[in-house]
Design a protein around this nucleic acid. Structure first.
Lengths: 152, 152
DNA sequence: TATAAACCTTATAGCAACTATAGATTCAAG
DNA sequence: CTTGAATCTATAGTTGCTATAAGGTTTATA
């Protein structure tokens, strides 16, 4: 299937999907997008289908889906006749994760607000923020703690 | 100042601060904690002060402060006579970032919920989730988009 | 046709903040 | 003294890109 529409370069493709050329090459390396056709000089050239696929990828990533999840979603969207249960499952799972993060993040916000509001503005010695950071007991909830590492 | 209390090993230290020995060694490498004293055989030994410092670090990290922010907070907590304005500023800045993340994350959650609820459970072909991911126009808000990358 | 600007190429290293592995050594208990 | 758990160093891997260097190609203009 040769490209009919005027082929575009990697910069234009990236621009239209809202990312950078480096990202496109990266996606090619990890197999999220296929190898592009090349000019005689070796430069990548793309058609509309590539724009659609990359846009899908970027949009899913913006939604916070992991690259692996995007890979699965792409595989499924390539199979239009299959039932969409799995798509649904991935999305629901992602939604649950986001809801859990929201919980922890807002508990964190509350705790931080409390810390900040209790700081009287004196010396470090008596700073409530430093105190709370040094002593877990001074926290109201444990909910927020035990790893804020994957709050993304 | 020699250690008086029975010195503890890296495993015990890590356990008491809620992390792993690898993490302690990592913090030592990047200079968050100082070099420990060693046994004749070369193993690290720590005292109570190290426990306090590591606990502070872990707690601040659990609050989502970056390692650089923790470094500054530590430096300030080492200067008890200084005014705590800067501590306050760091904490407030962090609070603002968390509030911004919460905004975006909840916009994302709403959009995801909408997607999931609109999926009728048929074929992939007509799956609302796949449709929305493929077409930015189908999103209600742009707020959530343009990068979920630093939602942590 | 020449040239220069804009674009593209690969390979490699870096970011945050750890985590995991391998293979050797040391420590504490029995 | 032996055993097994803990520790040591050094190095590579994780995620999802981003940045850099050192060049090659394409395109528009003169």
């Amino acid at each position: 299937m040769p490209e009919i529409s005027p082929a575009i370069g990697i910069g234009e493709l990236a621009r239209r999907a809202g990312c950078k050329p480096e990202t496109v090459r990266y996606y090619e390396r990890i197999g999220l997008v296929g190898d592009a056709s090349r000019t005689v000089g070796g430069q990548r050239r793309y058609g509309e289908e590539a724009v659609r696929r990359l846009t899908f990828i970027r949009h899913a990533r913006d939604f916070g889906f992991s690259v692996d999840a995007v890979r699965e979603l792409l595989a499924m969207s390539d199979q239009p006749d299959m039932p969409c249960q799995e798509v649904d499952a991935i999305a629901k799972h992602h939604l649950e994760e986001i809801e859990a993060r929201l919980q922890r993040l807002s508990a964190l916000r509350d705790e931080l607000r409390r810390m900040v509001s209790q700081c009287a503005g004196g010396k470090v010695e008596s700073c409530r923020i430093i105190e709370v950071l040094g002593d877990h007991q001074l926290c109201i909830s444990d909910q927020a703690h035990g790893g804020a590492h994957d709050l993304g």
